[in-house]
Design a protein around this nucleic acid. Structure first.
Lengths: 143, 143
DNA sequence: ATACCTGCAAAGTCTTTGCCTTAGG
DNA sequence: CCTAAGGCAAAGACTTTGCAGGTAT
């Protein structure tokens, strides 16, 4: 996990100004254990009194465009989620379709070699992929 | 690709009534080469004069709940797409991020064995997964 | 006849923009 | 000072629901 100072430094290098809102958003993002939605951040008390929804939205835009965040969308969730773009490689997630809990998987991505093949066959460039697993977690199976 | 009669028969077996709207939606869905959105179907002239958006929406709901359609969501597209749920296994897609063209991939899914491992490790049941590839297609690379 | 289906209108959710004000460098 | 950033209000896109009237079985 990156440090607050590290994140702020990266923002500064990309020309972002150091504002109350940016500081608050960075701090609260760091507390999140899972990919977070705009509304989730907005509900945090620190954010609540520091900035409004539009500001968070635009900070997400900026952080995504400078490569600090990655935008994610999961099946059957309307709202987008964001997560830190720690290394350039993508992440896999495992989601419970009953309680909506999300965990990041720590598997070496098994799809990279297939991706290379598809790129060659199709002529596509700048390939990337999303791989997400869904199921019912242990807790929810008991109900 | 299923036949119109076959689809209609499946609907009847599940208790759906044979209505003008259902017939039109089935026919127009069969013409689609890619996963389709509600708005795409709505724009088809046959649909346009037969039923309105709400009706299409509810037919999609019914067809999805009886397992005839599958709901898909792709990163950076707001609207959901649907495709025929031909066999029970999922499909992989390759999407151009420039022109938004979608093609279905005909690869044996490479993730099934990993899925089994994840199920065992996590205790998750009813596992499934989505795998989608993104890139820039040949045509769009020339621009 | 009765349950299902349709159409219209309207509300809900999430996202995005315009515009004026504020404040960072 | 100059320009990026913030706040508020409102619009946009997509989805979803309520209800009254129509239709398949």
């Amino acid at each position: 996990m990156p440090s607050y100072e590290n994140l702020l430094e990266k923002c500064r290098l990309k020309g972002l100004r150091k504002t109350k809102a940016l500081e608050a958003v960075l701090k609260v993002m760091l507390k999140q254990e899972k990919p977070f939605s705009l509304v989730e951040l907005e509900q945090d008390p620190v954010i609540k009194k520091t900035c409004d929804r539009t500001t968070i939205f635009r900070i997400f835009q900026r952080l995504t465009s400078i490569g600090l965040l990655r935008k994610l969308s999961f099946s059957d969730e309307k709202a987008s989620r964001f997560s830190f773009n720690k290394d350039e490689s993508h992440k896999e997630y495992l989601i419970c379709q009953s309680c909506s809990d999300i965990q990041e998987l720590d598997i070496g991505c098994p799809v990279n070699s297939i991706e290379k093949e598809i790129a060659e066959t199709s002529g596509f460039a700048k390939m990337r992929h999303d791989l997400t697993f869904y199921g019912i977690c242990k807790n929810c199976q008991e109900d």
